[in-house]
Design a protein around this nucleic acid. Sequence first.
DNA 1: AGACACCTTGACTGGTTGGTCAGGTCTGCT
DNA 2: AGCAGACCTGACCAACCAGTCAAGGTGTCT
Lengths: 221, 221
Amino acid sequence: MAQTEGAEKSGTRAEMREETERLILDAAEGIFAEAGFGGATMQAIADSCGLPKANLHYYFSSKEKLYRRVVERIFTIWLEAADSFDTEARPEVALRRYISRKMQLSREHRHGSKVWANEVMHGAPIVQDYLESALQVWTDTRIAVIRRWINEGLIRPVEPRWFLYMIWATTQHYADFAHQIETLNHGALDDAQWHEATETVCGILLRGIGIDPHSTGDRPA
Amino acid sequence: MAQTEGAEKSGTRAEMREETERLILDAAEGIFAEAGFGGATMQAIADSCGLPKANLHYYFSSKEKLYRRVVERIFTIWLEAADSFDTEARPEVALRRYISRKMQLSREHRHGSKVWANEVMHGAPIVQDYLESALQVWTDTRIAVIRRWINEGLIRPVEPRWFLYMIWATTQHYADFAHQIETLNHGALDDAQWHEATETVCGILLRGIGIDPHSTGDRPA
DNA sequence: AGACACCTTGACTGGTTGGTCAGGTCTGCT
DNA sequence: AGCAGACCTGACCAACCAGTCAAGGTGTCT
């Protein structure tokens, strides 16, 4: 009976295992985001997904293993979003799409962004290898693209590194500091505010590097 | 003997107490920044400043009280820096000074920024009242100033709220994500890089709202 | 039906942590 | 000198937490 937890119907063994793991990972992401690794307890995660604590240890042998899986999942989502930074498109198109996507992620994956921020803030004890491999590679290729745009005179000459950090910082801020933003806003941002914030961020960043933010790709150059 | 801890010479009772409290607060700031509230231990803080753990409890009755004092101190520094946002000066001067000051704080008070970020990310359980009072007031006055600049045609019309968040996000990113930045940079940023990053951030943000970032106040308008 | 592997869970444990306390030390005052 | 009050600290404790385990349940094969 307890095997068909919650709403999902029974499927194959593998499907059910995956389903339960996802249930735990979702709960863990929320708890780790709200309390940090040290502040989170396995009991709290167990309560959050309505499973006994011992059950968690059946699926994830240790707290650290569970945490690592949470962070890995977040990094995967982040990398997929990163693909929206199209290296072939014109800068105003590629950047606008990438920034919009990152804003969307901040809205839909607030917890994930917080866990990542926490991890990096504490010196990336778990994901140092990601920083040095995948992130390094991704960053280097994008820096090369931005350099090319500069050489072709498409954007103003800015150090690509600092510009990329500005994009990350401004977009992730809406997830990591959501509580502060919502306090100052007297409530959660509505659809219109999210749209306006995204437009403002896009507008300032694009204009900041010398692009007219309204000359999107759908008009002939 | 142990009373004149470390390097400082003995002064009055009050001076020595203040000195010891500062020693503990400095250590606590570092530990809280690196491990979060839940991950930090009183023993680690004690070791970090070379005092026995029981001594910490003599000066700060509980871990939470100590943490609160750390956060309060950070907020004070933040507010003092906020005064560099001169509401009288012209936008390019006021903004450039404020952004530069915030970048400087990110470099000199990395730990403090991290503790603040941690606190807000976890829902500001300790400093919610600051957000609702002091920060709210400060933000409202600055938004009014930016609105005035817009009405006077000094800067492009942007929602001041989102613009302010961009400033906070980009500058604090250099403290909160220092580890990520330094990993990608293969080492800490040197003086030249900090200068260049500050210039890039200022340049993009000012240009983004329609200001020529090089028309500083020291030339006649 | 029976056997087997997989899943679930309440109860338990060893280690860690925040906090206490009694007894000692030092300083400034009279 | 002698005293009072501030300061220091090793040893201790109760609470909590990650992780274990053994016993029982459930689905799926032959």
